[in-house]
Amino acid sequence: MRRIVRNLAALVVLAAPALAQAGPSCTNQPRENWITEDAMKAKLPALGYDKIKTFKVTGSCYEIYGYTKDGQKAEVYFNPVSGDIVKSYIGG
């Protein structure tokens, strides 16, 4: 019984970082096929995002934290090949 508990505890410890960073999977394309970060940043105003506080690579996504043109908080994940929105959280 102790072995089972110990193995489960080890599994939780090993899986925790992966779960904490779990985000959407945006592409399986290699980075050489991605839109450059500067090109993606230039597209954001036309997509309705303003006052970008953070732009980063998260897994296989471009991710931003900022605001919509309406002033709502936005966390958005983009496909870095097409620039399409994969997942977004608006408001709150």
Score class of each variant (00 low, 15 high):
Val12Gln: 00
Ala10Arg: 13
Ser60His: 07
Arg3Gly: 04
Gln29Lys: 14
Cys26Ser: 06
Asn7Trp: 10
Val57Trp: 03
Glu63His: 04
Arg6Ile: 15
Lys69Thr: 13
Arg3Ile: 07
Ala15Trp: 03
Gly71Lys: 09
Ser82Lys: 06
Thr68Asn: 10
Val86Pro: 01
Cys61Glu: 03
Ala20Val: 15
Lys41Asp: 05
Tyr89Thr: 12
Gly83Arg: 03
Leu8Lys: 02
Ser82Ile: 09
Pro45Gly: 08
Lys53Asp: 12
Lys53Tyr: 04
Tyr49Pro: 11
Val13His: 01
Gln72Met: 12
Ser25Trp: 12
Arg6Ser: 08
Val57Gly: 04
Lys87Val: 01
Ala9Arg: 00
Ala74Gln: 10
Ile4Asn: 02
Trp34Tyr: 09
Gly83Asn: 03
Leu19Tyr: 12
Ala46Gly: 10
Asn79Ser: 02
Ser25His: 14
Pro24Ala: 06
Gly83Pro: 02
Gln29His: 11
Lys51Tyr: 08
Cys26Lys: 02
Leu47Gln: 15
Asn28Thr: 14
Val76Gly: 01
Ser82Cys: 05
Ser88Cys: 03
Gly71Pro: 07
Pro80Tyr: 08
Asn7Arg: 09
Leu47Glu: 08
Gly71Ile: 08
Asn33Ala: 09
Tyr89Gln: 11
Ala20Cys: 12
Glu75Trp: 05
Ile64Met: 01
Pro45Asn: 07
Lys87Cys: 01
Ala46Leu: 09
Ile35Phe: 07
Asn79Cys: 04
Tyr65Asp: 15
Val13Asp: 01
Ile85Ala: 04
Ile35His: 07
Phe78Pro: 00
Thr58Asp: 13
Gln29Met: 15
Gly23Thr: 10
Gly92Tyr: 09
Asp50Tyr: 08
Asp38Gln: 15
Thr27Glu: 05
Ala10Thr: 05
Gly92Val: 07
Ala42Ile: 07
Leu19Pro: 04
Lys56Asn: 05
Ile85Thr: 13
Gln72Ala: 15
Leu14Phe: 15
Ile85Glu: 02
Gly71Gln: 09
Asp70Trp: 04
Leu19Ala: 13
Gly66His: 04
Ile64Glu: 00
Ile64His: 00
Phe55Gln: 03
